[in-house]
Amino acid sequence: MSSNGQDPKVKAAVRRTAVICAGVVVGMVGLAYASVPLYDLFCRVTGYGGTPQISDGPSARRSEREVTVRFDSNVAPGISWRFTPEAREVTVKLGETKTVMYKFTNTSDRPTTGIATFNVQPELAGAYFNKIQCFCFTEQTLQPGETVEAPVVFYVDPDIVNERDIADIRTLTLSYTVFPAKGGAPVTAASQAVDKPSL
């Protein structure tokens, strides 16, 4: 027993417990920050949650089997943009490279910056939907009344016929949502002044 009435072993145990707790807190904060990029990487690699794959070029294989790809475009609260595809749907052969243009128009009276996120439905098809070029996850600033066009270049992997649950699928939906953006990331409507979108 020490002169101040506390056992040195108890003091050491309390100090060790405090250090461990602090380490756990720091580790959990680190994991929280890392979870979003790690989840994004997991989705991009596996197609989980309908996340399309990124390809550096056209497919080496083609099939006579056709699928219809529908295009869905949405504008989140907080950005006054009109956002539409040139076609609501296209029919493509598996492995065929296709380009579809999207048009963005800033309908507000001030410059605004937006960013588009995407997914594919049904979710299992995301692993077979390959984007060669896309405007997604790229900040775009438009001046008042400005309109720009941007392409999405893609193909559907012929191996989709080997996925038992979607082997007979005839229609896929590529869905985009444009959000207000700051620093390369979407901004929620709650964190900024909300402009009602014009659609």
Rank of each mutant, 00 (worst) to 15 (best):
S55N: 04
S3R: 11
S63D: 14
T91P: 05
L41A: 14
P77D: 14
L38I: 15
Q53R: 15
T91S: 14
A13R: 12
A60S: 11
Y39M: 15
Y102W: 02
E64F: 03
I79K: 05
V90M: 05
K103A: 08
P52I: 06
V24Y: 07
P8A: 02
K98E: 13
T91E: 15
V75Y: 03
N4C: 06
D7S: 09
T46E: 13
A22E: 07
K9E: 15
Y39G: 14
T99F: 00
P85F: 00
S73N: 10
T105F: 01
S2P: 10
I20M: 00
F71C: 01
A60T: 10
G30Q: 05
V26L: 15
A60F: 01
S55V: 04
N4K: 09
P52Q: 03
K103M: 06
A60R: 04
P58D: 11
T68I: 08
V10D: 10
G5Q: 09
Q6Y: 13
N4H: 13
T105P: 01
V19Q: 05
V25E: 08
R62D: 14
S59A: 15
A12T: 07
V67D: 14
V92Y: 14
T99N: 02
N4W: 09
Y102V: 00
M28S: 14
V100T: 05
P52L: 04
T84D: 01
Y48I: 12
G57A: 04
G57I: 05
V45E: 14
G30V: 06
K103D: 06
E96C: 12
W81T: 12
T17G: 06
E64R: 03
Q53V: 10
T46M: 11
K98T: 08
V14L: 12
V36A: 08
V100M: 01
C43N: 15
I79D: 11
F42R: 07
W81N: 12
K98M: 07
I54Q: 14
V14N: 05
V69K: 01
P8L: 03
V45F: 07
P77H: 06
Q6W: 13
V100F: 00
L31M: 13
C21T: 03
G30D: 09
C43Y: 05
K9Y: 12
V24N: 08
T99R: 07
V92L: 15
S73V: 06
L94Q: 12
F71P: 00
I20H: 00
R61D: 14
R15W: 08
R15N: 10
L31W: 12
N74L: 10
S2K: 12
V19F: 04
E64V: 04
I54K: 06
A13C: 07
T46H: 09
Q6E: 15
R44Q: 15
G30M: 08
R88W: 02
P37A: 09
P52T: 06
S80K: 13
G49I: 10
